[in-house]
Design a binder for these strands. Structure first.
Lengths: 340, 340
DNA sequence: ATGGTTGATGAAACTGGTTACATGTGTCAA
DNA sequence: TTGACACATGTAACCAGTTTCATCAACCAT
């Protein structure tokens, strides 16, 4: 039995000894190969291979002060909107040679703070969070650690963290305007839980502040397709039937469309249905969903760039507003003549 | 200006000096508070707070040899099937006090190997990959680093890595059997790119090996809803019209359903459509999609448990087979009487 | 009074790299 | 022949923690 075969992993000194050089030379072979003589380099590389040496990330990190990964805190991965954002964030971070650690919060600020702590504990260099509602522990954590952190899915240049997102209130108003422009005045608004979800709150507030003459009725359901179905049923049971249903999330709109179809209510002839998000599947629902496109891919990339710049240069990035655009498809039409 | 205000982060010695104790004592306050006298502990904690001290993850990692995170390599985050798996993996890993680093591979083995290298470089303790097709560099990496790695979405007890997944061939056969049981004999099979996607390959192989008397015609399209639409158009242009369309992924089935609806082909009266995956939205398509349920949430949890056990105890977990179940909804029906 | 045990603490070694600085050699111009 | 300088390499300090072992006081039973 040789010593080499022992289970213990080789370290720098072992390699140096095997190659008959100093640790500094081995280190140079890794970090500045051009400063090492050809022959020496070869010897060292052979030693590395024969010892199956793998550099220790922790040891490097302790010297450079860099771990090369950042954390992202999202409410859930089950909604495609966040998955899509993370997808583009991940690929953009890769161009900065940064990796992405994902943690989910279930929209619970306490859990968010806890997970944020966990990310810091394992060495995250920066954090990307969603929205602007966070636990006090979260704020004290990032303040205490001087941790770069940006907030997404929300735009507010006066918020204490740089925000990279869209104007939720405006997006909701855009959707509403489209419906009112089509002559709808009695409109049902379907939304997910608003408690501790600032995006939803902002969208509702945007509608209320700008509420036209017509009356809006609000329906709060779980943020899922099943929730949308439930909302669809609830709306159909209302005494004064709305001519349009505005869903503050495409996921809910999917459920609403499904339920209306199941109950034989034709869209858009009998009722217009409007979404907000523009998920990949929304263009392929039946009928194709009119919605407001939220540029989550660009947002993910922008958030990646912002947090990368911050951790690299120590400069705090500015807030960044992304436009949201109306996407008119076939689920909306002029208000039924019945109303005229 | 005080020294304290300097930008440099405080370290253990600073805290020890401020509290008037040794570094060992400060370390104990963190890791074994009960061994430190009440009064001393308080002094130390005060010093920690006043210096805004945050322990260095890297320094801890270098001693314990643990970084407390593992990496997951998935083809994409844009398909809900992977997002859902990651969601459950993340939450199960959290119970093991492990975090999850996500990297996407676009089904490219070379990129996968590269990203795997990146994950190792930043200190991942283990890896979870999808499928069994990997680049040689990937295998040499995990062999060289002695890195715990498990494979998901595939079950093969003889594969060199522990596999935690379902039997793709059997799942495809289950779907096919459902259609043939309903009397369908001419069946179109729609699938995504099979090159370097072993799950798709296995599903196709499963169908071919078990192919019934009836003839199957295969349509390969991009794995997206748009791809499904394309497949729908292609199928409708075929000379010999099939009575059923078997999609080897629910995403494709969504597109197919959409296209058939758009073209006025009624489902399941004129054609049955079958999926495979059982995404969250599939129960709410129109018509509700018959499919084979792949237990991706349980798979994510199982993968998390396996990799966690491996990194904690150094024991290699065994392969784990998850059942896939037929889910009959309304998109499939007995073959049209035209055929009789 | 003495020896044994427990509890709290400190000194210093240790983890595995990076890097500032020192050293030694060879080349070239003065 | 010598001084200047580049180049290759080594020595040792350093990063920020953990951990082993030693020390010392207090307490208790003999």
């Amino acid at each position: 039995m040789q010593r080499n075969t022992s289970r213990k992993r080789a370290n720098l000194r072992d390699v140096a000894a095997a190659a008959g050089v100093s640790v500094a030379t081995v280190s140079r072979v890794m970090n500045a190969p051009e400063t090492v003589a050809e022959a020496t380099r070869k010897k060292v590389e052979e030693a590395m291979n024969s010892l199956h040496w793998v550099p220790s990330a922790a040891a490097r990190a302790i010297n450079t002060g860099r771990t090369r990964f950042v954390g992202a805190l999202v409410p859930t991965l089950d909604n495609a909107i966040f998955a899509r954002m993370l997808a583009s964030m991940e690929s953009r971070l890769a161009t900065h040679r940064l990796s992405l650690v994902v943690a989910t919060t279930d929209n619970d600020p306490a859990r968010e703070a806890e997970k944020a702590k966990g990310l810091v504990d394992i060495g995250a260099e920066g954090l990307v969070v969603s929205g602007i509602t966070h636990a006090p522990e979260f704020y004290s954590l990032i303040e205490r650690c001087q941790l770069p952190a940006v907030s997404t899915s929300f735009y507010d240049p006066h918020y204490q963290l740089p925000t990279i997102g869209y104007d939720n209130a405006a997006a909701a108003r855009t959707a509403l305007a489209h419906l009112t422009d089509l002559g709808h005045s009695r409109i049902a608004v379907v939304h997910g839980p608003s408690a501790s979800n600032d995006r939803t709150q902002a969208r509702i507030a945007g509608l209320e502040s700008h509420s036209p003459k017509g009356d809006l009725s609000f329906y709060e359901v779980p943020l899922s397709i099943a929730g949308g179905c439930e909302a669809g049923r609830n709306v159909l049971q209302a005494k004064k039937q709305p001519t349009a249903i505005l869903c503050l999330s495409d996921v809910l709109a999917s459920g609403v469309l499904f339920e209306l179809q199941r109950q034989g209510v034709s869209v858009p002839q009998e009722k217009s249905v409007m979404g907000l998000d523009d998920l990949a599947g929304s263009a392929h629902l039946f009928p194709e969903l009119s919605t407001v496109h939220l540029p989550v891919s660009r947002m993910g990339a922008a958030a990646a760039d912002a947090i990368a710049a911050w951790v690299e240069t120590q400069k705090v990035p500015g807030a960044y507003l992304l436009r949201s655009d109306l996407v008119i498809r076939t689920s909306t039409a002029a208000a039924a003549s019945v109303d005229c």
